[in-house]
Design a binder for these strands. Structure first.
Length: 480
RNA sequence: GGUGGCGUACCCAAGUGGCCAAGGGGACGGAUUGCAAAUCCGUUAUUCCCGGGUUCAAAUCCCGGCGCCACCUCCA
């Protein structure tokens, strides 16, 4: 079975095939670094990470590029206000725009790492690619796809008949909607800006048409082509990017190169929080750092985001985080159980001469097949997790897990976690000396069947942040 | 107003024409335990928003409602 991905443009599932196998070139719409990214933003970044991990797990070498928007996109309203979001943040905080961007970019990387999102290979910043954008605009003008007016440059969408294919917003429908204020310089209300001019804008560059700044969409076309070439295998983003951002990217890029821009378009549905659209005004706005501040681990947030298919509308709740934490605790317990059964040293396994039992292997193979089939089916992580949990249940139930099975199971979990990125497979750090001495005292009390002392010591250990699980092989300390 | 999507148990969430409707959380009963925890066994949707229809067969397809979300405007 091979990987199938839903393509926004074709509106159907397509078998995935790199344009130049086996290398996969993927571009993800990244954050605008004018404030902390929120949980909805990370929903989209998680799709990018899941896709990248799945591709690598399936053996494809991947080159992943995620752009950093640090120019800020100017809107008509912002023009009125004389500032865009990045500039507004700079003014608010009394810093130069680049410093604001640097600050929030670092915050983005911190949050991203907390969620176990792997490093992309490139994080191009729009402000580092302005000369490339100027050149692209110049070529679009040269080819007659753009026109200059009053020191600004607009893309003429009538020169690109396929405009509207991605979003379904055909020219007629767009004109019927007519919700965009007609800009005097535009020939067609739906022409979009390639180069803008506004003397009040703080970030400006020189260009043949005068000092100004790049339009809303050109950065992704230029940076993706600079780093990945003229045709990309995959381009991802949130559903809001479909129009006008990605629609315009296609028009610009293909007008520029005459070649198909992107093979597979993937978009995440926006999530809800507490059943409503997330908004600062609604009081249901979460950032990763807020959630970590509530005592949650990054992997718990990751698990929760992972547990809903990316094209489904997820309802994110704090109660959901608690449930995710409990689910992970079950996996942690399984790992600890396997370790106790002798699975901690895979390398030493060979000498035992004990082969894993056949039923166990059948169960493991079945789980592996289902896991892969689920991911192959348009990244169905929920179904993949179900396969994992079925394996956990079957292994517990089998009760014949010896050292060989335990090692095999741990290896299997490690393999699945290359995609999931949520498990704790490394040997957990043992308790500190103080706790260890309490445990020793408790073991001694238990040998005398002094249950009162045993319970007292257990309570003290608990106060120090550890709980004690008594089993056939003695006490097992576990961090709370 | 135009366009697209969704509505599955107490909560989260797979499944989109045909084996008992995955899985996680929670709850309840039992086993185990000095007591717990963990684990195991069992129970928890005769039914998939509502009403029609197509079909031998529908949560899955069609029609009509109701509710929610998104895009059309910076937005993941």
């Amino acid at each position: 079975m091979a990987l199938v991905l839903h393509d926004t443009l074709e509106r159907r599932d397509l078998p995935f095939e790199p344009l130049e196998p086996p290398r996969v070139r993927m571009y993800n719409c990244g954050p605008t670094v004018y404030s902390y990214a929120h949980i909805g933003n990370f929903c989209a970044f998680m799709l990018a990470d899941l896709l990248r991990r799945t591709l690598e797990w399936e053996g494809y070498p991947v080159t992943q590029v995620m752009n950093i928007t640090d120019v800020g996109h100017l809107t008509e309203d912002d023009v009125e206000a004389g500032e865009d979001k990045l500039v507004a943040a700079a003014l608010r905080e009394g810093k130069p725009p680049r410093a604001v961007a640097d600050f929030y970019l670092e915050a983005f990387h911190q949050d991203r790492r907390a969620l176990g999102i792997l490093d992309a290979h490139h994080y191009p910043r729009a402000t580092d690619h302005v000369p490339g954008m100027v050149e692209a605009v110049r070529r679009l003008l040269e080819r007659g796809h753009a026109y200059e007016a009053q020191g600004e440059v607009y893309f003429d969408i009538t020169t690109f008949p396929a405009y509207g294919r991605l979003s379904g917003n055909t020219l007629d429908e767009l004109n019927a909607g007519a919700r965009v204020a007609v800009h005097a310089a535009k020939r067609n209300p739906r022409d979009f800006a390639l180069w803008k001019r506004d003397t009040r804008h703080l970030m400006q560059w020189d260009a043949p048409w005068g000092r100004g700044f790049p339009g809303w969409h050109i950065e992704c076309s230029v940076m993706s082509m600079a780093l990945l070439g003229e045709s990309l295998d995959i381009h991802t983003g949130g559903e809001d990017n479909i129009f006008p951002h990605h629609e315009s990217e296609i028009a610009q890029s293909e007008a520029l190169t005459g070649r198909p821009f992107v093979r597979h378009w993937l978009h995440t549905r926006h999530l809800l929080v507490d059943g409503r659209k997330m908004a600062k005004s609604a009081g249901n706005f979460h950032t990763v750092r807020d959630l970590l501040g509530r005592g949650h681990e990054g992997r718990t947030v990751r698990y929760l985001l992972l547990s809903t298919h990316y094209r489904q509308q997820q309802n994110f709740t704090l109660a959901g985080l608690d449930q995710a934490r409990a689910a992970l605790a079950r996996l942690d317990g399984f790992v600890a159980w396997l370790r106790e059964r002798g699975g901690e040293s895979p390398a030493a396994g060979a000498s035992t001469g004990h082969e894993a039992a056949a039923p166990f292997h059948a169960s493991l193979d079945e789980a592996g097949r289902r896991f892969r089939a689920a991911l192959d089916d348009d990244l169905n992580a929920s179904a993949a997790l179900a396969a994992l949990f079925d394996f956990v249940n079957a292994t517990y139930r089998g009760a014949d897990a010896g050292p060989a099975e335990a090692r095999a199971a741990l290896g299997f979990l490690g393999d699945l976690d290359r995609v999931l990125g949520v498990m704790r497979l490394e040997a957990p750090a043992g308790p500190p000396a103080e706790v260890r001495s309490l445990l020793a005292a408790r073991a001694e009390a238990r040998s005398r069947k002094d249950w009162a002392a045993s319970d007292r010591l257990r309570a003290r250990v608990r106060e120090m942040g550890w709980e004690v699980l008594d089993g056939p092989s003695g006490q097992r300390p576990r961090r709370l």
